[in-house]
């Protein structure tokens, strides 16, 4: 089958289904797939719910016109009751466009919202959006820890080679961070079916409050991947498919308060660098 027509590539960029032949070709053709990706960038930039066709009308506050009159100098004026009548009372919108939900972080979560779709929702009335305080603390703590901590423990754990279920492909010694006496080891084990797990063995007292959570971090701590709750003893976490442990080589264990906030608390108790 020849390459897809340019028209089909455009429709595919808009995520319209193609005919069976074109769809089959596209699935197996790197060059057509690449072109769809290039066209789709513009689609993804603009098809955000905030820019979609207007849905629910909302009457602006009556005082708003005064600013328009002042800026334009017009002497006519709308009748406030007509403006108010143009918006039905607030209620459910029957045909609001579907709002894409942000997926749960199955893939690396950057510390700062990156240029990804959908646009992160902004707080309604905050002109300045500073770094989240919890995260900036994480950055500081992590930067300090990487200077003093990593390298000491790194590579100190001999790879045990073939494990009972799979092959250890990388390992780290987890060293305590300031104020903590938690220690442990971590290893990445590749199973026969190709999936990989992070096996964490943690020696630590239960935290006074909250729980321990395991993370993979980039070396610069610019990104992190949550893995799950760690208890003392040995725990295994399946790694998200496709994650590159060369890119996320730092195993981090934090204390997380029971506050429902999925972000890193900034309070790490142990950390180590995976080495293959």
């Amino acid at each position: 089958m020849p390459h897809c027509t340019p028209e089909d590539l455009g429709l595919a960029a808009l995520r319209e289904p193609l005919g069976p032949d074109a769809a089959e070709h596209l699935a197996g053709c790197a060059s057509c797939t690449d072109e769809v990706g290039r066209l789709r960038r513009a689609v993804d930039v603009l098809t955000v719910p905030e820019l979609a066709e207007p849905t629910a009308p909302v009457a602006p506050p009556p005082a708003l016109w005064a600013g328009i009159a002042a800026a334009t100098g017009v002497s006519s004026a709308p009748r406030p009751q007509v403006v108010a009548a143009s918006a039905p009372p607030a209620g459910p919108v029957p045909d609001a466009p579907p709002v894409p939900l942000a997926p749960l972080p199955a893939e690396p979560v950057p510390l700062r919202p990156a240029a990804a779709r959908p646009l992160p929702p902004e707080p309604p009335v905050a002109p300045v959006v500073p770094l989240r305080p919890r995260r900036s603390r994480l950055l500081l703590a992590a930067a300090a820890a990487l200077v003093v901590g990593l390298g000491v423990g790194a590579g100190a754990v001999a790879l045990s080679g073939r494990e009972d279920e799979g092959v250890a492909v990388a390992a780290a010694q987890l060293d305590p961070l300031a104020g903590s006496d938690a220690t442990g080891t971590a290893s990445v084990v590749e199973r026969e079916d190709g999936t990989r797990v992070l096996r964490v063995e943690l020696a630590a007292d239960a935290p006074a409050e909250g729980y321990y959570e395991a993370w993979l971090l980039t070396e610069s701590v610019s990104g992190l991947v949550p893995l799950g709750v760690v208890r003392a003893g040995t725990e295994e976490f399946e790694l998200p498919p496709g994650i590159d442990i060369g890119e996320y080589p730092v195993v981090d264990v934090s204390v997380e308060p029971l506050d429902g906030d999925p972000a890193h608390s900034g309070e790490s108790v142990a950390r180590g660098l995976l080495e293959s």
């Binding site: 207007p54 009308p57 708003l64 328009i68 017009v74 004026a77 709308p78 007509v82 403006v83 143009s86």
Partner: peptide, 14 residues
């Protein structure tokens, strides 16, 4: 402009 505001300000503001 006043007519436009009467008719479509709620749409824009929405």
């Amino acid at each position: 402009l006043a007519w436009a505001y009467e008719r479509w300000a709620a749409r824009v503001h929405g």
